[in-house]
Nucleic acid binder design. Structure first.
Length: 421
RNA sequence: GCCGGGUUGGGGUAGGGGAUAUCCUUGGGGACUGUGGAUCCCCGGACCCGGGUUCAAUUCCCGGACCCGGCCCCA
């Protein structure tokens, strides 16, 4: 037996159909939000990811030398290729709204919600530094989850890196990058260790404890503002706070209530420069469903051009975890699929003719090709996922109408071919 | 890269130092030749891999692979 590679997945039709339905809903929502599809290679020069993330990424990529001695890699994330495409075309009218659903690879130990190969919907807005673009980005992610039936099952944790930096500076941090990384791990480390790490970068212990108390929970944006202003004396954050409040207001006003301010959401050491956000299931059982934020500096690394950007990625693995748990991992389309059964020799000949005729009108159908056994044919129809059968025997041939049976209800009626569909 | 728990037909399982390896389901074939989505009959199909202990290993021991979960890291 040939085995598949560790951490990779096969998809059989029963799951693949569901996955395609999910992707088609993602595409539909992206489209109505004004995003256009792109695509790019699965292999890129390793250098591109080194520019963005540094050398340590080498240990987590599927990378190798090609026959021309180039260091190349299966892409571990979507953003660099997208930005590469963006800066290549200097003629593009901005703002640019692009999305795609590529396969991505990372060479790491598989665990719940993380495989070595996965698909991830990515949507980005370039050349638009507005808070409205931030809101649209989060709005699209939420609209997708809602359209999948997950409304009420998730929350979006939002933070603003600028505000966090102001806070850290005001309480004496000498190593803001490192402290953001510490905060990112807040829920994974012991409180004493967090405090110790914060203190070691120059923060007084009292302030470090105060920060921990703040970072521990989620807040409404108003609560967060009050605490930040009263407890941390963060300097002038009026603009930043005004912006994030307005972003919250837009989202709430337009039906997305499940948005909280969560100071521990900082998205690691990544390239984010402003708003950051992550979607989680309400019960906190799984990893993040989607994550993203504003990254205004990345394009400069690629081209010297400063193009503001905001976007998110939403992987298929955690989404599947959650949808299965909520009983939503199922087909929701209700298309008809006909199984055409000839009851005698003439009927079987006719069943093939009928099949081709129906397909000309895009009606899904297959003619039964097994033996004469009606019982087995009906059983096949059910097991092979058809919704209706069409029976063709002597009676049908005589009067030119076929017997159409709804397999779910058992209802049966006589129809002419042109009425079937 | 590290840690824990697993691995018996396609799926789900029982068992166990020696026998034809259990049961359900799925798959294939057949009977019943127009209302029967059944029923009945028949047939396929498995002890993850390598080494060790033993007269004998699917069973015990060691190592590996893979699966599930966690850590590290996070794109």
């Amino acid at each position: 037996m040939i085995e598949k590679l560790k951490g990779f997945r096969d998809f059989y039709p029963e799951d693949m159909e569901i996955r395609e339905e999910i992707f088609s809903k993602m595409r539909k929502k992206a489209k109505v939000f004004g995003f256009r599809p792109i695509d790019y290679p699965s292999l890129e020069l390793l250098e591109m990811f080194r520019i963005k993330s540094g050398d340590e990424i080498l240990s987590q990529t599927y990378s190798f030398k090609d026959r021309g001695d180039r260091e190349i890699t299966l892409i571990p994330e979507a953003t660099p290729s997208t930005v590469r495409m963006l800066v290549t075309r200097k003629d593009l009218p901005r703002p640019v709204r692009w999305y795609n659903i590529p396969k991505l690879w990372r060479y790491e130990e598989p665990q719940s919600g993380r495989t070595r190969e996965h698909m991830q919907m990515n949507a980005d807005i370039f050349g638009d530094d507005s808070l409205e673009a931030d809101a649209d980005t989060i709005g699209l992610a939420c609209s997708i989850l809602d359209s999948l039936g997950l409304r009420g099952s998730y929350e979006v944790r939002v933070n603003e890196r600028g505000i966090m930096e102001h806070i850290l500076k005001s309480i004496g941090s000498k190593d803001i990058k490192n402290d953001l990384a510490t905060i990112d791990r807040f829920h994974k480390m012991k409180r004493e260790d967090i405090v110790e790490r914060l203190v070691s970068s120059g923060i007084e212990e009292q302030k470090a404890i105060l920060l921990c108390e703040f970072v521990e929970k989620s807040y409404t944006i108003e609560e967060a503002e009050q605490i930040i202003v009263q407890k941390f004396n963060p300097g002038n954050i009026t603009d930043l706070m005004g912006r994030i409040k307005e972003t919250f207001r837009i989202l709430k006003e337009n039906g997305f209530e499940n948005i909280v301010y969560n100071p521990s959401t900082v998205r690691g050491l990544a390239y984010y420069t402003g708003i950051v956000f992550e979607g989680f299931d309400r019960e906190g059982k799984f990893r993040s469903i989607f994550g993203g934020g504003r990254y205004n500096n990345l394009s400069a690394l690629f081209s010297g051009m400063e193009i503001p950007a905001v976007g998110f990625g939403m992987g298929d693995a955690v989404l599947e975890n959650l949808m299965r748990e909520k009983g939503l991992w199922k087909n929701t389309e209700n298309e008809r699929r006909y199984y055409i059964i000839g009851l005698d020799e003439k009927g079987r000949e006719e069943s093939v003719r009928v099949a081709f005729r129906l397909r000309q009108r895009d009606v899904q159908c297959v003619a039964h090709s097994g033996g004469k056994n009606l019982s087995n044919a009906l059983k096949n129809a059910t097991k092979l996922n058809f919704t209706h059968t069409i029976l063709i025997g002597k009676n049908e041939m005589d009067n030119g109408k076929y017997t159409v049976r709804d397999l779910a209800s058992g209802d049966q009626k006589s129809m002419e071919m042109d009425q079937i569909g």
